[in-house]
Design a protein around this nucleic acid. Structure first.
Length: 826
RNA sequence: GCGCGCUUAGCUCAGUGGUAGAGCAUUACCUUCACACGGUAGGGGUCGCAGGUUCGAAACCUGCAGCGCGCACCA
C-alpha cells in the first residue's frame, strides 16, 4: 500500500513472478473482472499486468526514487531473463534426451477455484467440520448381503472402481474377488454398476467399517491402490471443481461441495444411506488461494533426479559441510527416499516447457520444429527447476567463462533450512550433472563447499514472521528508530548457530546501546587530542597497555575461531565483551591515570596504544557494524595513512586484523606475567570498592584508602588505584595497625584498608562477613570432599589435581582473613 | 506413523566431562569532565524427571514427561 492506494509490486522473474501472477489474479477477482484464472489466459494476463504498471507504476517509481533506488521499467526487463531461460530449456532438453523426463498421470493437489469466494460449504470445510457418511452396497454374487462403507466424500461414488478390504480381515476376506453394486450414478444399468472387491493391505481394520471405497481419480491413496490392482480411473470432478457427465444425471454440473449434499440425499432416497456422523476433516487448504485442495488425477511432467548417488555421498562423507551439521541427517534421509519430481505447473508465469505437439507427434527441443501446426505445451516449469541451476547458469554456462571458472564451486551457500529439499539438494544434483570435472577441470563438481543454515526469526509467540499475520516488524522502522548497525548487531548477537530466534526489539536496543558506547569511546580518544599515534614505544608500556594488547590478541583469535565454525553469535559476544567489559570498563578508565599525569611521553604512548586498539577494533567490528565503523574509521583519521586499496578509501578494504605474532609479543614484552599483576590489581580494586558497603557509603563519595603492599608498587599504579577506587587518596604504607573494626581486604598484592573513623555500620559489616565466612566454608568443604576421595586424587589428571589444591588454599586463606576481620569487629 | 529439535536465572538464550554464564528485567547507590543508550556493587538457578556410565555429569548413555518443527497419512 502506498499513498493509501493498493498497488502492485511488479517484479521481474521466477519466484517473484509467481507472486505477481497470484497478486494480479487476486486483485482482478476482487475487482470482479474475472472469476477464475482460466477466464484470463496467458497473453491477457501479461497485458493486464502491463496495464496496471501504466496505471500504478508511477507511484512505485516515485517511492523507489525516494529510497534512492534506480528502476528500470523497460519491457525487456519485465520478462524472464532470456539467457537464463535458455539454460533452463537446454537442461530440460538434455534430461529429456537422457530419458529422465517423462510424462505421467499422477495425483496432484489441485486448486479448483482459486479465485472464487468461499462457499458456505467451503467454510465448513475450512473449519474441518465434516460428516462421515455410512452407506451400504449389495454384494452382487450374494443378493441380500450388504457391505457398509464410511466416506466423507459421497460425491465421488460415481468415480469408484472398486471397494477394498484388508485381506487379513476375517469379516471380509472371503468376499475378495466378488463384486458390489455401486449405487451412483443411479441411472446406469446394473452391469455397469458392478465393481470388484479387492484385497489391499493399505485398508485399516479399525477405521470406519473396514471397507474402503476406491476412487483412483480423486484420491492419492486410492490412486495407488488402483495402480496395484489395475483399476480404471474415472474422473467425475473437472478442473473447475464441478461434477462432470460421468458423475451422472443427479450430480452433473454441480459444485463439488453442493454435489456432496445431493449425493447423500440420493443415497437416502435409494435407501442406501445408513447414518451420518460428525467428523473432523483434515483437508489441505491452498495457502495462496485459501480454498480446499482437490486431489486430482492429472497429466504432468516428471523428472527422475540425476546424479543422486554422488549428491548423497558428498554430504554423508563430510566433503561438503552443513552448518549446523544436524541438517546433513535431514538431507540424507530425504535423499534416501527420493520420489520423482513433478516439474510442470499450470501457471501463466514461468519458463515454458520446450515441448511441441502436432497430431499426436511430440517434439522436445529449443525451438519449435519446422512446419505448420506445432503447438507448445501450455505448462510452465516449477520455479525450482530454474533455481536449481543458479550456481552456474548465472555465470555464462555452458560456455567456460572466466567468471564461471573463478566462482564455481563457491565456498559458502547461506540459506534457510526450510528449502534444503527445494533448493539445496537440487543445486547439488544439478551441479554434479552439469558441472562435472572432465569438462571444466574442476577439483570437484559440487556447487559449494559449505552450506550455512540461518535460523528463522519468529515473533515473541514463536510464530513465523508472515505477511498475513502481520507480525513482522518493518526493518525500515527499526532502522529509523535504532540504526541499521544496531539491527544487524542485535539480531546476529541473539541468533546462535542453527537455532530459530524469537524476535525481540530489546536485542536491537542492545545493538543501539553498543553503537553508542563505541561512538563515545572513540570520542574519548579524540578529546585527548593529538594526531594519530603510529609508534608504540615498548619501553613506556604500562601493565594496563600490555594487558589490553593481549586481550586484543585474544579476541582476534576468538573471532577467527568463531568464524571458522560459523558461530556468528559467539563472534558478536566476544566483541561485545572485549570492547565493553575489557577495553571501556578497565583500560579506558585506567588510561585516565596517564592522561592526568604530566608525563607527556607516557600520554603519547597511551594514545598510540589506544589508536592501535581502536583501529583494530573498528576493523573487527566492521562486518557487524558496517556504517558506524566506516564513519569512525575516517573520523578518527585511521584511513589517512593507509594506501587507497588497503583502507585509505574505505574500511572495507582495510586488512583483517591478525592475531599478534610471537615476535611482536616479545618486542612489547607481552608475557602472561606482565598481565598477572594487572589482573591482581583489578581484583584488588573490585574488593576495595566492595569495602564501601561496610560504611554504607554513597558511590560518589570520595574516601581515603590505606594500602599495605606485599611488594613495591609503582606510583602510576597507585594513581590507577586511586582513580578506579574513586578515592580521595590511597596512602601506601610499609606497616599499618588498623583500628579495631576497620574494613579490610587481603589480596595477593597486599592489604587494603578503608579507615572509616567510626562511620562503619558494624552490624551490616558483621552480617556481610558472616555470609562470606559461610560461603568460604561451603567452598572449602566442596573441594575438601573431592580431595579426600582417593579415587579422585589417583585418577584425575595432575593439572586438575593441582588446580583443586590451589583452590582449596585460596579459599582457606580467604576464610582466615574473613574470620580475622569478623573478630576485629569486636 | 517416520525423522529432527528443545527443556539452564523472572524473560530470551549461550554453555559437549573439572568452581553455573550473558543480555534484558530487578535492588541499592551515583548525574564523577567518553557515554544515564551510562557507572559501581548486589540479589536471583536442586541446569524438565528417573535411572546409568565416571573419581567427577548441566554436558555422555537409557527411559519418561512436556513443548515445537518437518515429512507421510488422514475412507
Amino acid at each position: 500500500r502506498m499513498d493509501g492506494k493498493e498497488v502492485l509490486w511488479l517484479p521481474g522473474t521466477d519466484h517473484a513472478g509467481i507472486a505477481t501472477q497470484n497478486a494480479v489474479e487476486k486483485a482482478l477477482k476482487k475487482a470482479g473482472e474475472i472469476k477464475h484464472r482460466d477466464d484470463l489466459g496467458r497473453e491477457a494476463l501479461v497485458a493486464k499486468i502491463w496495464d496496471w504498471k501504466e496505471k500504478y507504476g508511477g507511484i512505485i517509481i516515485q517511492q523507489l526514487k525516494k529510497l534512492g533506488a534506480s528502476c528500470d521499467w523497460s519491457r525487456e526487463r519485465f520478462t524472464m531473463d532470456p539467457e537464463y531461460s535458455r539454460c533452463v530449456q537446454k537442461v530440460f532438453v538434455d534430461l529429456y534426451q537422457k530419458g529422465l523426463i517423462y510424462r505421467g498421470k499422477r495425483m496432484v493437489n489441485w486448486c479448483p477455484a482459486s479465485l472464487t469466494a468461499l462457499s458456505d460449504e467451503e467454510v465448513i470445510m475450512k473449519e474441518q467440520k465434516g460428516l462421515l457418511y455410512y452407506f451400504k452396497v449389495e454384494v452382487a454374487e450374494a443378493p441380500g448381503t450388504f457391505l457398509t462403507i464410511a466416506t466423507t466424500r459421497p460425491e465421488t461414488i460415481p468415480g469408484d472402481t472398486a471397494v477394498a478390504v484388508n485381506p487379513k480381515d476375517p469379516r471380509y476376506a472371503a468376499l475378495i474377488g466378488q463384486h458390489v453394486i455401486r449405487p451412483l450414478p443411479a441411472e446406469l444399468p446394473r452391469e455397469q454398476k458392478l465393481i470388484p472387491i479387492v484385497g489391499d493391505e493399505h485398508v485399516d481394520f479399525e477405521f470406519g467399517t473396514g471397507v474402503l471405497k476406491v476412487t483412483p481419480a480423486h484420491d492419492k491413496a486410492d490412486f495407488e491402490i488402483g495402480a496395484r490392482h489395475h483399476l480404471a480411473a474415472i474422473e467425475v470432478i473437472d478442473a473447475a471443481g464441478r461434477m462432470n457427465d460421468a458423475a451422472g444425471a443427479d450430480l452433473r454440473g454441480l459444485d463439488r461441495f453442493k454435489a456432496r449434499k445431493v449425493a447423500s440425499e440420493k443415497l437416502a432416497e435409494l435407501g442406501a444411506l445408513e447414518k451420518e456422523e460428525p467428523y473432523t476433516n483434515n483437508v489441505g487448504f491452498s495457502e495462496r488461494a485459501d480454498v480446499p485442495i482437490e486431489p486430482r488425477l492429472s497429466e504432468q511432467w516428471f523428472l527422475k533426479y540425476p546424479s543422486t548417488e554422488k549428491s548423497q555421498a558428498v554430504v554423508a562423507t563430510g566433503e561438503m559441510k552443513f552448518h549446523p551439521d544436524r541438517w546433513a541427517k535431514v538431507y540424507d534421509h530425504w535423499m534416501g527416499g527420493l520420489q520423482d519430481w513433478c516439474i510442470s505447473r499450470q501457471l501463466w508465469w514461468g519458463h515454458r516447457i520446450p515441448v511441441w505437439y502436432r497430431n499426436g507427434e511430440t517434439h522436445c527441443g529449443l525451438e519449435a520444429p519446422a512446419g505448420e501446426g506445432w503447438v507448445q505445451d501450455p505448462d510452465v516449469l516449477d520455479t525450482w527447476f530454474s533455481s536449481w541451476l543458479w550456481p552456474f547458469a548465472t555465470m555464462g554456462w555452458p560456455e567456460q567463462t572466466e567468471t564461471l571458472k573463478k566462482f564455481y564451486p563457491t565456498t559458502d551457500l547461506v540459506t534457510g533450512p526450510d528449502i534444503i529439499f527445494f533448493w539445496v539438494a537440487r543445486m547439488i544434483m544439478a551441479g554434479y550433472e552439469y558441472m562435472g570435472e572432465p569438462k571444466f577441470g574442476l577439483p570437484n563438481a559440487m556447487p559449494f563447499r559449505n552450506v550455512y543454515f540461518t535460523g528463522i526469526i519468529r515473533d515473541k509467540q514463536g510464530r513465523k514472521m508472515s505477511k498475513s499475520l502481520g507480525n513482522s516488524p518493518d526493518p525500515l522502522d527499526l532502522i529509523a528508530k535504532y540504526g541499521a548497525d544496531a539491527l544487524r548487531f542485535g539480531v546476529m548477537r541473539a541468533a546462535p548457530l542453527g537455532q530459530d530466534i524469537l524476535f525481540d526489539e530489546q536485542n536491537v536496543e542492545l545493538g543501539r546501546n553498543f553503537c553508542n558506547k563505541l561512538w563515545n569511546a572513540c570520542r574519548f580518544r579524540q578529546l585527548q587530542g593529538g594526531e594519530v599515534q603510529g609508534e608504540i614505544n615498548p619501553q613506556l608500556l604500562t601493565g594496563d597497555d600490555k594487558w589490553i594488547l593481549l586481550r586484543l590478541d585474544a579476541v582476534i583469535r576468538e573471532l577467527n575461531a568463531a568464524f571458522a565454525e560459523y558461530k556468528f553469535s559467539d563472534a558478536t559476544a566476544a566483541l561485545y565483551r572485549f570492547f565493553w567489559n575489557e577495553y571501556c570498563d578497565w583500560y579506558v578508565e585506567a588510561s585516565k591515570a596517564a592522561f592526568s599525569s604530566p608525563d607527556e611521553a607516557r600520554k603519547a604512548n597511551t594514545l598510540a596504544v589506544i589508536d592501535f586498539v581502536l583501529s583494530h577494533t573498528l576493523r573487527l567490528f566492521h562486518p557487524f557494524l558496517p556504517f558506524i565503523t566506516e564513519e569512525l574509521w575516517h573520523g578518527m583519521g585511521y584511513s589517512t595513512d593507509m594506501p587507497e586499496e588497503q583502507g585509505g578509501q574505505t574500511i572495507m578494504f582495510a586488512p583483517w586484523p591478525k592475531a599478534l605474532e610471537d615476535d611482536i609479543k616479545e618486542f612489547y614484552s607481552l608475557s602472561t606475567e606482565a598481565v598477572a599483576f594487572v589482573e591482581a590489581r583489578n581484583d584488588l580494586i573490585v574488593q576495595g570498592r566492595n569495602l564501601r558497603r561496610a560504611g554504607n557509603l554513597q558511590a560518589g563519595k570520595k574516601v581515603k584508602y590505606v594500602f599495605h603492599p606485599t611488594a613495591p608498587i609503582a606510583a602510576h599504579d597507585v594513581e590507577v588505584l586511586k582513580l578506579l577506587l574513586n578515592a580521595e587518596n590511597v596512602e601506601v604504607v610499609s606497616a599499618y595497625e588498623p583500628k579495631k573494626g576497620t574494613p579490610a581486604v587481603r589480596t595477593t598484592l597486599g592489604d587494603l584498608y578503608l579507615p572509616l573513623e567510626g562511620l562503619i555500620d558494624v552490624e551490616a559489616e558483621r552480617a556481610r562477613l558472616t555470609k562470606e565466612v559461610e560461603k568460604d566454608r561451603a567452598e572449602i568443604a566442596k573441594v575438601e570432599q573431592k580431595l579426600a576421595n582417593p579415587n579422585f586424587t589417583q585418577k584425575v589428571p595432575p593439572a586438575v589435581l593441582e588446580e583443586h589444591q590451589k583452590r582449596l588454599a585460596d579459599w582457606q586463606a580467604k576464610l582466615a582473613h574473613d574470620q580475622a576481620a569478623l573478630e576485629a569487629l569486636g
